[in-house]
């Protein structure tokens, strides 16, 4: 393509047309991509309310939230003590137990029950299941051990078990999400 005066208008026109094409194609792409994001009905289902009154001390229940298991454990005094006795500096993912529970409700531990390594569900919810070396949870896929605060202590997982957003609506009712 030349650069003479007569060619300037042609260059400009073709450049304009090219930009229109590129912009149009770009904009048209977005609805396709965005259609793969969570739909409105999926987003609307993002809260779950759980009645925790039937969970006795030392027991755990698993509820579904956003298609994932959420562990709710009613901890014993011994378990709380064990969680607080650890030296934070020695932890792979340094977090105090107090940061992982609600104030004055430290008997209740609410966790996303998915191993932070590669997404398996750790065992330890039932009394009969193995709870690993730190009396919390144990992921059978690649051998990650979590303690009574759900913190990673040993194994390949990089992070502590995640905390879902939740709040106490009353002493016996929590809303997750």
């Amino acid at each position: 393509m030349g650069h003479g005066a007569g060619e300037t208008r042609r260059d400009f026109l073709q450049l304009t047309a090219g930009s229109f094409g590129a912009v149009g194609a770009g904009i048209a792409l977005w609805p396709f991509v965005h259609s793969m994001n969570p739909a409105k009905d999926t987003l609307a289902l993002s809260t779950t309310e759980v009645d925790i009154s039937p969970i006795r001390k030392g027991q755990s229940i698993t509820v579904m939230w956003r298609g994932k298991p959420v562990f709710i454990r009613h901890r014993t005094e011994a378990e709380i003590e064990e969680a607080n006795a650890v030296s934070i500096a020695d932890l792979p993912d340094k977090q105090d137990d107090a940061e992982r529970v609600k104030k004055d409700k430290d008997q209740w531990l609410v966790l996303v029950g998915i191993c932070t390594h590669l997404g398996c569900v750790p065992t330890g919810q039932k009394q009969t299941e193995t709870r690993g070396e730190f009396n919390g949870w144990f992921c059978p896929c690649h051998g990650s051990h979590y303690d009574t605060s759900g913190r990673i202590r040993k194994g390949p997982a990089p992070k502590n078990l995640a905390l879902p957003p939740y709040e106490f609506l009353s002493d016996t009712l929590i809303k997750i999400g």
Binding site: L13, Q14, T16, A17, F20, G21, G24
Partner: peptide
């Protein structure tokens, strides 16, 4: 608008 530009091209 694109069609007009394209027509000019």
């Amino acid at each position: 608008v694109f069609a007009f530009v394209m027509y000019a091209v």
